[in-house]
């Protein structure tokens, strides 16, 4: 068995979730690494959108450190600004949003704005929506990365930054005035989650080898839907790891640790 860290597992799983011949709107870090890995393996015709304004770049200078990085703009088919790419997205160009966040609830609502109840005195201020709120609203499917910890998989997020299925009601997104279908996958290093079609609640799709559904439920602060049969997550091969590490040569994103 090959040795990989949680970030490598997340990036690899993200790659596996993406499909060929689609367009993914990527956030900084692991989403870009996942998309680059997918392009180099099973999805050579996967294309990326970067929110500062590029569509379908060829990343020949290496891994962009920012979604406005020069590296995200080399040999693109189309370069404008934020309005350019977000308007394409609002129109329906982006198949996937690939975002991160600090908290997620059972309906896939994501917080990346703040902790606390008082907006005018924010206990912990995070960066804010950035592109995520618009991506989760208007890309067709949203893929979310949140570290698998109880304080992050919560019954109620402190602030909804990126809309999921709201309170779970069937017309929540319609009443919110957003266009995309909504949350599709939540990726962690030990479990892959999806959403139940009728209740729109998070369900367990796959778990890492050697773990049981209870191990995952213990790290989640709300009740998960657990089907009778849960698949085992596919692990990266030595070749996948070589590729991933080659993509993040400087170790900016794959080197960090997750609190267990």
């Amino acid at each position: 068995m090959v040795d990989y860290n949680p970030y490598e597992m997340i990036a690899y799983t993200g790659s596996m979730v993406l499909e060929d011949n689609t367009i993914v709107f990527v956030g900084t870090g692991l989403p870009i690494i996942a998309a680059m890995h997918a392009q180099r393996t099973h999805a050579p015709k996967l294309l990326m959108i970067y929110e500062a304004g590029s569509l379908a770049p060829i990343l020949e200078l290496g891994l962009p450190l920012s979604v406005g990085d020069t590296r995200a703009f080399t040999k693109a088919c189309f370069v404008k600004g934020l309005c350019g790419v977000f308007e394409l997205t609002q129109r329906g160009v982006a198949d996937y949003a690939f975002i991160g966040g600090a908290q997620v609830d059972k309906y896939g609502n994501v917080n990346s704005t703040m902790l606390g109840q008082d907006y005018s005195k924010q206990e912990t201020r995070f960066p804010g929506s950035g592109g995520a709120g618009a991506m989760a609203a208007n890309c067709e499917k949203t893929i979310i990365i949140v570290p698998l910890e109880r304080r992050r998989f919560v019954e109620k997020v402190d602030f909804i930054t990126s809309v999921g299925y709201g309170d779970g009601s069937p017309d929540y997104r319609e009443k919110a005035g957003v266009m995309g279908a909504g949350p599709y996958r939540v990726i962690t290093h030990q479990a892959l989650f999806g959403f139940d079609e009728t209740t729109r609640r998070m369900n367990l799709l796959e778990i890492a080898p050697g773990l049981k559904p209870d191990d995952i439920q213990n790290k989640v602060g709300f009740e998960l839907i657990v089907p009778k049969e849960v698949e085992t997550m596919k692990e990266p091969t030595a070749e996948d790891l070589r590729l991933l590490r080659e993509i993040d040569l400087e170790g900016y994103f794959l080197g960090r640790k997750i609190n267990r």
Binding site: E51, G81, L82, F86, T89, K121, E123, T124, S129, A134
Partner: peptide, 21 residues
């Protein structure tokens, strides 16, 4: 983080597209 925690700044949040728009 410092300004927000101490209530020293009034914030008004939008999405990136929201501000661009």
């Amino acid at each position: 983080r410092y300004l927000a925690k101490n209530g020293m700044i009034e914030l008004d949040d939008y999405t990136n597209y929201g501000m661009a728009a």
